[in-house]
């Protein structure tokens, strides 16, 4: 009751979320750079593109969410749609 800082868990404190976000940026950058320091075992040519996997993951997720937002406009119905 006396000290609010001990009541609020670390993860809910303002600013820490921003740190997590920045940490992600850094981790991504590090992993992208790592691509240049080991022998990548590839099957397809496209894999040799730097940070190919990362970019694919990023694009897939963004595309997925934007695609889903559009599709939702068509498919969304009220919760009792079938019970009517």
């Amino acid at each position: 009751m006396t000290d609010d800082r001990h009541k609020t868990p670390w993860i809910e404190r303002k600013g820490n979320l921003t740190w997590i976000h920045r940490g992600l940026w850094i981790a991504c950058a590090g992993l992208a750079l790592a691509d240049f320091f080991y022998h990548k075992h590839t099957v397809f040519r496209i894999e040799e593109f730097p940070a190919f996997y990362g970019l694919l993951g990023f694009i897939a997720c963004v595309g997925l969410v934007f695609g889903a937002r559009e599709i939702r406009k068509i498919l969304k119905r009220g919760e009792n749609y079938y019970d009517r």
């Binding site: 976000h21 790592a34 934007f66």
Partner: peptide
């Protein structure tokens, strides 16, 4: 090769999630 590429894929996906959430684009 397996480990780094997989981690890369996951980290960037997490980044995408975080960005979308922060910009309130997420449905």
């Amino acid at each position: 090769s397996h480990v780094v590429t997989q981690l890369q894929l996951l980290a960037f996906a997490a980044l995408a999630f975080s960005i979308l959430l922060r910009h309130r684009v997420y449905p």
